[in-house]
Design a protein around this nucleic acid. Structure first.
Lengths: 331, 331
DNA sequence: CTGTTAGCGCATTCAT
DNA sequence: ATGAATGCGCTAACAG
């Protein structure tokens, strides 16, 4: 099991050819005779030769691997984003390497210039800001594409999170009864390296619209876990008398918990409460949650397309804005 | 932006030292004087030098990267598994590269010996079988560690899925009222490359126990999506008259949909139905789903430990069996 | 069509 | 403590 892997040289010797001929076969060059190609392929198969990609990359300067930086792969949204991008990139013979930034350690690793991220052909960054995750002096010297955030220095694909907040507000205003209260349940982003501003922008859009309509509201903050929404709304109801609510929560994950709690205390949708969230994760369809759809597959496709057009020679920075639409269901 | 990255040679020249001295600093060798080390580090920082890992790997034969093969990263279970493993490995200076096998294309890629997976130091395989994903002649010539499956040829960390089925059966038998029916909602594994046998073993354990008690039951098959459980149980109820049920479903994802439907038709737990699933995803706590816990973090830790002990010289194959325990909640 | 050769950037002897 | 030289496995001219 530990017999050193065969190299291109071994293959060449066994075939009585030069190593460049083997290399040509490996790289599908057409300038090889049918017979020698066949012989080489046979030997390769027989001895179980697999080319050393590190040597190949060293020599050719192309790794065919891409980096995807995400806040957290335990979060389904990013799991699905990755999954979709991976499918697209696989068809085009690129590999995606994921860099989840869940804590200080992972952040520190990525800042060290010895990290793998500096060795890939390109870097996709989801939700996070370039300035926060890289030191100014060590921004990877390669194509950077932002997903779900904006920075005029880089390509980007994003949605208008402020507008998402506005849409939510309009929906709730329209749905609201007399004597019902407005509630914003969101995640409080601290101004640190992990800030994405995604939530704060949604908050802002919502708040701005309500103020415009001179509607009072309350805000409660939640942890960004599956249990976060449940616990936040429970705490709220433990403290205040029960009342009819129009709730906007800034992501489905929180929405699930909120709905779960509301079901538990026998609140009925439309009657006792209206609830709208953001994302449209698969589960929100199952439980009938009204939500504002993040066009996940479009986002993934657009990001990949940006990279492909770059490979084809595009020079100027491009920014793509996608639409989010409301998916009305049973809340 | 496209000025070729500086190399170790550039650093050496700027510091008036040999490249081997720079190399020593890079690798934290202690045989460098304090002054030269300091000078070198300064220059490295100034010019933003980052060592080429491909060259380093080529030279040293160690990539410090590991492969993790999973069925699907859109599935939260694997997202969390990866997330946990990544945290552990990051602390030990290894990078994990994910290889999701969602379709024929990704399977085909992994079978080609030019794939990145053949270049990592080790391969972790979750739920899938080695024989199905690699051709006999091209099983990566390196440490392979199985997660959630068993093969005597390789290290493995797994749970007893047959026993999980038995536990579920015993729970439901204990809970069941007179006149209630037993139902198994599961995913039908086809005998193809993506077979994991995880589900079929859980099925078998459940079925065997019920038969032992001479209890009749029905089986319905579901897609392995978030909506799968909902649709399966809905179809069942559309076809048959409503009746009290004791349901075992083989993963939480299906359980969520089933509970959602049952809530919708106003079935109340313990009274109209008992429901138990498998996994204990975070959401199952939120919605109060009774489930059999997959010890996710223990699985991740044990897998990583197997690799570390291998690095320290362990030669013989090891297999670790972890316990799954029932988490009783409100179904 | 095919073989020879010169790097790619680094770790690692082996000298000094 | 430091530098020069060798080789890791491959690609890409170049020469034939």
């Amino acid at each position: 099991m530990k017999n050193k892997n065969p190299t291109i040289k071994d293959v060449a010797i066994l075939c009585n050819v030069g190593i460049s001929t083997v290399s040509r076969v490996l790289n599908n060059s057409d300038k090889v005779s049918k017979d020698t190609r066949k012989k080489i392929l046979t030997v390769i198969e027989e001895i179980g030769y697999s080319p050393n990609l590190h040597a190949r990359t060293l020599s050719s300067k192309k790794s065919f691997s891409l980096s995807l930086v995400v806040p957290d792969m335990g979060n389904q949204f990013y799991g699905m984003l990755y999954s979709t991008m991976e499918n697209i990139m696989a068809e085009n013979n690129h590999r995606i390497i994921v860099f989840p930034l869940t804590d200080k350690i992972s952040l520190q690793k990525i800042k060290q210039k010895t990290d793998l991220i500096y060795q890939t052909d390109s870097v996709f960054i989801a939700s996070l800001s370039v300035n926060n995750i890289f030191k100014k002096s060590s921004i990877p010297n390669k194509k950077i594409i932002l997903i779900d955030s904006f920075d005029e220095r880089f390509d980007s694909v994003h949605v208008d999170n402020f507008k998402i907040g506005e849409i939510a507000a309009h929906y709730l205003i329209e749905q609201s009864n007399k004597n019902s209260n407005f509630l914003l349940v969101t995640f409080k982003e601290l101004e640190n390296e992990f800030t994405s501003h995604v939530f704060s922008k949604r908050d802002a859009g919502f708040v701005s619209t309500l103020k415009k309509h001179k509607i009072k509201f309350e805000t409660i903050y939640s942890d960004l876990f599956w249990s976060g929404g449940y616990e936040a709304i429970k705490k709220y109801f433990d403290k205040f008398p029960k009342k009819k609510l129009n709730i906007f929560t800034t992501c489905d994950m929180l929405g699930f918990g909120i709905k779960s709690y509301l079901d538990e205390i026998k609140f009925t949708p439309f009657n006792d409460y209206n609830l709208i969230s953001v994302d449209d994760l698969p589960l929100s369809k199952v439980i009938g949650l009204t939500t504002i759809r993040q066009p996940l597959s479009e986002i993934a496709e657009a990001s990949c397309d940006l990279y492909f057009s770059y490979l084809k020679g595009r020079k100027k920075i491009e920014s793509i804005l996608l639409n989010s639409s409301i998916i009305k269901r049973n809340t």
